[in-house]
Design a protein around this nucleic acid. Structure first.
Lengths: 196, 196
DNA sequence: ATCCGAACTCACCTGCCGTTGAATTCCACG
DNA sequence: CGTGGAATTCAACGGCAGGTGAGTTCGGAT
């Protein structure tokens, strides 16, 4: 076993960021409970105790790792600023593009996977959805029952994620962006503006 | 501690069924990995070793507990037999009614929750969806890309489940059947029959 | 040059989980 | 009535996970 000498490494090791990157990938792939500190440490080529040293606990690591590399609330606000016309389509397209950009370190997938069987993560997910998406969307809607409409949209969006990432339905995974936008955009638009 | 004497209990104990019921409830609530044999045993008021005695392993318990109390393929076939007209609405209504009937022992929720972080369960879920729902629906659809259409429906259905049971969006949980059927029925119908 | 704190590793503790094997009690059948 | 097998419990093992405390090496401010 390539045993490394104890003690601080020379230079700017960047170890903390390596741990975070590894943690994001594992959390995205397996969720909170299935991800072990030891596996994160191994992926970052580091002693498990170091992870604890930096982040205090597994919960602390999770909380830190779940930060987005951008501000989702701003993104939603930008979409809403263009009005309700075509909003459904813009939401879907933005979602897909963002996912492609995030790649293997995707906080939304990580939260979704973690929410199952780990109540604090479910809470985080609910708060994120409510504060960054549902509330702004609901207050932009000019129709009755705006909150229900926002939640209807959320249910379809969550369904896209779970169907593609968890259940891994093949044709949904293979479909290109244009097809998905054409399929889902009108659905969201209807939830936002049509008669219920 | 109310310690029970070892050995067989008098009469028809019905213990096996009690264990299965407890297992279904725990798996539905928490999924495979979070459910412990010990918690199932405790809920059934039984020694953990007895669970093992009856079902061989946790996997065995899971496989046995996941059996539906009815045949879902038959149910889908019944819906399809009435033609494609109004199929979307019938699917949603049947789903909601079935869920209400299943209550706290719901194999679909259990499979969904278990699929995260436990690949064999994901496999079971995929096979169930494909064989009992996607294939029949796809072959009933009279339009281009039938399989994609079926998967689009599945993504919305899965979204309903996750949004209500995992994320627990309040207005979706509070909404009555009529509202949900009115909202989701046309979506599914469009996925099945409209131009994409 | 010195020294404090931060980065890092090691060995270890504790707790839970799935599983096992033996012992006990009861039912069914002869 | 006796006997074999099924139901049931107990005690325990081995593994793995999260966490801890002490010790080692380095960077940077003084």
């Amino acid at each position: 076993m390539a045993r490394r000498a104890a003690g601080r490494r020379p230079g700017d090791s960047g170890t903390r960021e390596a741990i975070l990157a590894a943690a994001r990938a594992r959390f995205t792939e397996q969720g909170f409970r299935e991800t072990t500190m030891r596996s994160v440490a191994a992926a970052a080529d580091v002693d498990p105790a170091l992870v604890h040293h930096f982040f205090g606990s597994k919960e602390g690591l999770f909380a830190t790792a779940m930060a987005f590399p951008f501000n989702p609330a701003d993104m939603v606000a930008g979409l809403l600023a263009q009005g309700v016309d075509g909003l459904g389509e813009r939401l879907v397209r933005t979602l897909l593009v963002t996912f492609a950009r995030l790649g293997p370190a995707n906080p939304m997938i990580a939260l979704l996977r973690s929410a199952v069987g780990h109540p604090p993560a479910a809470q985080m997910l609910r708060e994120f959805l409510t504060g960054a998406v549902l509330d702004p969307v609901a207050s932009a809607v000019r129709a009755d029952r705006p909150r229900l409409r926002a939640e209807l949209c959320a249910s379809q969006v969550v369904g896209i994620l779970v169907a593609r990432e968890v259940v891994e339905l093949p044709e949904l995974r293979a479909a290109d962006t244009a097809t998905l936008v054409a399929a889902y955009g009108p659905t969201l638009q209807r939830y936002l503006t049509a008669d219920l």
